[in-house]
Amino acid sequence: MSTSEETAVNLDTDDTAQDNQPSANYADIIYNGIWKNNPALVQLLGLCPMLAVTSTVVNALGLGLATLVVLVGSNIAVSLIRNYVADAVRLPAFVMIIASFTTCIELIMQAYTYELYQILGIFIPLIVTNCAILGRADAFASRNPVLPSALDGFMMGLGFMAILVALGAMRELIGQGTLFSDMQLLLGEAAIHWKWVVFDDYPNVLFVVLPPGAFIGLGLLIAGKNFLDEREKQRIAAQKAKDGPSNSKRVRVTGQVS
């Protein structure tokens, strides 16, 4: 993975401060998970499955859902035991919890969506090693009560899944000219006609279907987010400039002036 959780969080000290507050604001948690601290776009966590399985919407949605469930489950569990785990064995314990949830999900998918399970292959068990999950467990759930932790897990999972699906849709559209093909693999027979052939006679753009295309797609998504953030920042800066600077924060180096 490209960035470890620690540095990702440290990049913005405000975030850690907010994360560490036991009574985090729910609105903040939602905003953090979906946008500001999005695990896929900002923290660049879980890149490996993200780049590997987002060739179609259904793959992305499948993995996204699995990750979401594991994330919520592990966050709740970790939050519940947070006061009873010694610091030294913290991480192994968290990994055990995550592994258990992942195994559950794997078995469930094997049972109900066997084909999708086969398509996703190794990437379902690999959810255990998804830094996003361990990161949230360590950075948030181990310091917050159950309810905020569950919300945080859900929102982070949702943010992750949203990017996965967006990337999947992008790659499916450009790579194969369709959208929502094979949705029945995940959603059952009802979804069999969901496949929308956007372009007829479309030549498969292999480059986009292959993992290198995912890099470019993700790069574009990150660029888009940065662009929006930049605009917002400029707006805030303009607002602040209008308000004028606040009082001086200067201290006297050389004692008091009488």
């Binding site: 924060k249 200067r250 201290v251 006297r252 180096v253």
Partner: peptide, 8 residues
């Protein structure tokens, strides 16, 4: 050493 940062 001007202290404008808020530190001595």
């Amino acid at each position: 050493q001007c202290g404008q940062c808020g530190h001595p």
